[in-house]
């Protein structure tokens, strides 16, 4: 379609550039602050042009926040969450779509409804469960009298305990349940034609072989899309690691380190706020997920739109 709209084209660019400026200004200012010395960053008015201290500040912020091990931890947790979420979503949806049994719909809804319970709103009791992940089973056994029975028969007091605080498991496990991922996989599996299932069965493939040799290769695009959004999600977790990890030296994650850098009375003790370091650390923390989103743009957009969340 060919239209000549020079005025509107100019206006379009003008509006888009104006929008970009609004979006970029805060991060640009953060970047400029990260390139300055302590004196320069605290002298009003604000600088708009970068100085020459970027590498110095990055190195100092890196050492101050102990980012080396924190990056390793965050990578471990993010990878664990991504693999866990994709695996769980895939096998759950597979069982729900390709097996015939009563209660399928009920189980699907039981998982889907967890969408309504984001971690933030059930944070206090979830933390309590993380302190001992076996509490639910202990309580149920106590109520139903099974504990009493076991004690009467074998003389063993039932005291289940599995503390998840300060561990990778504790950081990963509560985050891997995935209603959206299961939903996405279910939608995909529903498009698989019956003939494919029949052909596979005719050739003697059991369910697991069918899943592994046929469905997983077919769902590669799904995996890429889910992996991108889940990685960003896991990397950016803040509230949960803030609570679960008290032993920051060993299990701290990079995003949580930012909470120590907020330049207020607490961290500076009334001294000059170290904005240059805070901003350098902010840049370091946000770079990996931004790189993933830009590099995997296509998958990222597809994943976001297909999961509706």
């Amino acid at each position: 379609m060919i239209e000549r709209t020079p005025v509107l084209n100019f206006a379009t660019h003008a509006i888009l550039i104006f929008g970009l400026v609004i979006i970029l200004v805060p991060i640009w200012l953060a970047f400029v602050a990260a390139t300055q010395t302590l004196q320069a960053v605290n002298s009003a008015p604000v600088e708009f042009w970068p100085g020459d201290q970027l590498l110095v500040n990055l190195a100092e912020a890196w050492a101050l926040s102990d980012f080396g091990p924190k990056f390793v931890n965050t990578l471990i947790v993010a990878t664990g969450v991504v693999i866990g979420k994709i695996t769980l979503a895939c096998i759950t949806a597979f069982a729900l779509v390709f097996f015939n049994f009563r209660g399928r719909v009920l189980i699907f809804w039981m998982i889907f409804i967890t969408l309504m319970l984001p971690l933030e709103v059930r944070i206090v009791p979830t933390y309590a469960v993380a302190a001992n992940a076996l509490t639910p089973f202990q309580t149920i056994m106590d109520w139903t009298g099974i504990s009493w029975l076991i004690k009467a028969v074998s003389g063993v007091e039932v005291a289940l305990e599995w503390n998840l605080l300060n561990s990778y498991t504790g950081l990963i496990l509560p985050l891997v349940a995935t209603a959206t991922g299961t939903f996405l996989y279910r939608q995909f599996f529903l498009t698989i034609p019956d003939e494919l299932v029949e052909a596979a069965r005719m050739d003697g493939a059991g369910p697991l072989r069918f899943l592994w040799d046929i469905l997983i290769p077919l769902s590669k695009t799904n995996i890429a899309a889910l992996a991108t959004i889940m990685f960003v999600y896991a990397w950016n977790q803040y509230l949960w690691p803030l609570l679960v990890v008290t032993d920051r030296a060993n299990y701290g994650m990079v995003v949580v380190q930012l909470s120590d850098l907020v330049p207020d009375q607490l961290t500076t003790g009334g001294g000059t706020p170290t904005w240059h370091l805070a901003m350098a650390a902010t840049l370091v923390v946000m770079l990996p997920p931004i790189a993933i989103v830009i590099l995997m743009q296509r998958w990222f957009i597809r994943g976001l739109i297909n999961t509706d969340k």
Binding site: L29, L258, A278, T282, P289, I290, I292, V293, I294, F300
Partner: peptide
């Protein structure tokens, strides 16, 4: 699109600098 990938606390910290009365 890319601001989607920035963690909320990083956004908060960057904006604390932007809105800071002194700097």
């Amino acid at each position: 699109i890319w601001p989607y990938a920035v963690a909320a606390p990083a956004v908060g910290l960057a904006f604390q600098f932007v809105f800071n009365p002194g700097a």
